[in-house]
């Protein structure tokens, strides 16, 4: 049986090369060659369409970000998208698989598919080309590209202007001074060629933001596989995949940090800035907790998550 996987990241992206491709090879190995995975060179739809593509069977296997689409479907998935969640992509991804995949019933939010993985990348930073953020007031007036609603609310509350655009667009706008900065990972700085334009990068303990990802297979296709093959694939997916992809993200960050060297001034956010962020973040977390409804304890999930990743948030 050949499974078709649609991949929208560039073919040489570190998590394609170091997580999805090795996983695909291992599927063939653990099923004794009965199941193979063919990763398409060109995606079969736009990145935001990728969850629906697996559900509708356009491709068998897809991956993507939960925050691609703004709708009511992946509300509990936001667990991993807050600030101060963890600095290690392996620990982050394992905690995310464990908690969102467990108590928060991720399977229910991914109806029509079988989950092969849930994961997160390394900590998000706040990069800019204007000034070092020494105090909350330094954020005033900065035009910052943000990946989604949460970070937008966060920086807007501190006086910056959040702007939305696709990731490849960031280089164009940053190098022309159309935007002042961007919330990105270490890896994205080199992947999108931003190291010459960014001067200051503020790290926040546990990351100022994170993104959460799904990795899923069409449910009917999954059911059509033999029980033995499903068990074999499950064994290399889920928690095992969280470790594999987490390591790929960590390594990508390490490579990026080496490449950047001292071209960019990396500094830890001063305590006043962290305090200001925490205040806004706490409120946004509470809004989310209240939106979850009966049966889901968001506050407990967040606390458990931070305990697993070792982030102390007093």
């Amino acid at each position: 049986e050949e499974l078709i996987m649609s991949s929208w990241l560039p073919p040489k992206h570190p998590i394609v090369v170091n997580a999805f491709e090795p996983w695909a090879e291992e599927v063939e190995k653990v099923t004794g060659g009965r199941v193979t995975v063919r990763i398409m060179g060109k995606p079969l739809g736009s990145p935001p369409a990728h969850f629906d593509m697996a559900r509708d069977g356009i491709a068998d296997i897809t991956y993507g970000l939960h925050s691609f689409t703004e709708d009511d479907r992946f509300n509990r998935a936001r667990l991993g998208q807050f600030s101060f969640m963890g600095d290690d992509a392996i620990a982050n991804s394992q905690a995310y698989w464990e908690i969102y995949g467990g108590k928060l019933d991720a399977a229910d939010e991914h109806e029509g598919t079988h989950l092969l993985g849930l994961f997160m990348h390394g900590p998000g930073l706040l990069h800019n080309s204007i000034r070092k953020i020494e105090a909350p007031a330094d954020l005033q007036g900065l035009k910052l590209r943000v990946p989604g609603g949460y970070v937008a609310d966060l920086v807007e509350a501190l006086g910056a202007s959040p702007l939305f655009m696709s990731s490849p667009e960031v280089y164009e706008k940053l190098s022309r001074g159309v935007i002042d900065g961007v919330a990105f990972t270490y890896e994205a700085m080199t992947a999108f060629n931003l190291t010459d334009d960014i001067k200051y990068s503020m790290t926040v303990p546990g990351g100022i933001y994170n993104t959460t990802w799904f990795f899923a297979i069409n449910e009917d296709k999954w059911e059509s596989l033999s029980e033995e093959d499903r068990a074999a694939i499950d064994a290399i997916s889920g928690a095992a995949f969280a470790e594999r992809v987490g390591k790929a993200w960590n390594d990508a960050d390490t490579v990026a940090m080496e490449e950047i060297g001292d071209k960019v001034d990396f500094y830890e956010a001063p305590p006043e800035v962290v305090a200001a962020l925490k205040e806004v973040a706490g409120k946004l977390e509470q809004d989310w907790t209240e939106s979850l409804g009966e049966g889901y304890d968001g506050a407990a999930a967040l606390a458990e998550f931070r305990e697993m990743t070792g982030v102390a948030l007093e």
Binding site: E70, D71, R73, G148, G149, F164
Partner: peptide, 14 residues
């Protein structure tokens, strides 16, 4: 119809 059911909206302007 799917989008009505899921409440799909744009990311920043909703």
């Amino acid at each position: 119809l799917d989008q009505v059911e899921d409440g799909t909206r744009s990311a920043s302007l909703m």
